[in-house]
Design a protein around this nucleic acid. Structure first.
Lengths: 159, 159
DNA sequence: CACAATTGAATTGTGCACAACCGATCCGAC
DNA sequence: GTCGGATCGGTTGTGCACAATTCAATTGTG
């Protein structure tokens, strides 16, 4: 039973083999892709999570989402985002300011420099996609499957 | 062009949308799955990467691989593994000892307690697989696609 | 044998990632 | 208006993850 993952007709020994676990494949692939990003983003002075935050901000240039709205999009909490946003602010790419209506909220907006950076990452998605060695159809299917998994897990957690 | 990922027939604006990037899907799914593991492994006093190290050791109970061999399997370097292995040793699950033939090498072996822990994780893969909401065929396909991506990336890096 | 180059692990420093906790602000019921 | 609970962001502490460096042990070469 070479393809067993969860014990259907295989021994327990088989199931615990590292290479057969989806979870390890996911964990390793995620770090491998980050490795592809690293040299590209290094030249921009960005880390991968910082790049993701900028992606959200570039999506809605006039919005200035709050920290928790960013967290909802990226599924990251304030313990991760607060210091990350401070570094982006120190780099001159974003501004953080308390909301006038609700002093608890902190709105995160792009600076001119942050807006301008967008031009320099236009070709990044294509370069990353090439590095995976997958075709368009496979990439789309992979993305949709992964998104489904993530959504399933988070839906279960809310209940 | 709703499914565009890398610019085939879509505008640049589309390509940079967060939800359309495979990389974010991968990153989010990996963290979501780690969230599923957390409560399960917490009761065993393990973190997810520690669990992965044990998986490798359980695969070859009489082998006592070196730190670098562990790193090759898991694609982690000594900067990550050294402190992690120290914690596993402090927990009484593994032993580290310098190789007799080559004093530079450190061999990592299981203790009785580490061996015994294996019985308590037998059902973990099944529980994780269920949490994904995917069927067996989908899981196998997902795993194989991800493994292919990881291997492609690492092959490119060696050249 | 000598010694330069390589290898293996550990250490240091930076940046996530998350749990747990804190303080300030807001909101609703009274 | 006020008080209790909820919300929001920040801080602290722990544990990866990786680059860069260090140092000891080993290997290759003359």
């Amino acid at each position: 039973m070479h393809n067993s993952i969860v014990g259907y007709g295989s021994t327990v020994t088989d199931d615990l083999v590292l290479r057969r676990q989806v979870c390890f494949a996911l964990y390793a692939a995620s770090r491998a892709l980050t490795d592809v990003y690293r040299p590209i983003l290094d030249r921009l002075g960005l880390t991968y999570p910082q790049y993701l935050v900028l992606l959200v901000l570039w999506e809605r240039p006039d919005d200035a989402p709050t920290v928790s709205e960013l967290g909802a999009e990226l599924r990251l909490d304030s313990g991760t985002l607060s210091p990350l946003l401070k570094r982006l602010e120190a780099a001159g790419l974003v501004v953080r300011q308390r909301s006038a209506r609700d002093e608890r909220r902190v709105e995160v907006g792009l600076t001119e420099q942050g807006r301008a950076l967008r031009q320099q990452v236009d070709d990044v998605p294509l370069r990353i996609a090439r590095a995976t060695g997958l075709g368009i159809a496979e990439l789309v299917e992979l993305r949709d499957t992964l998104t489904r998994v993530t959504d399933t897990i988070h839906r279960q957690k809310e209940q």
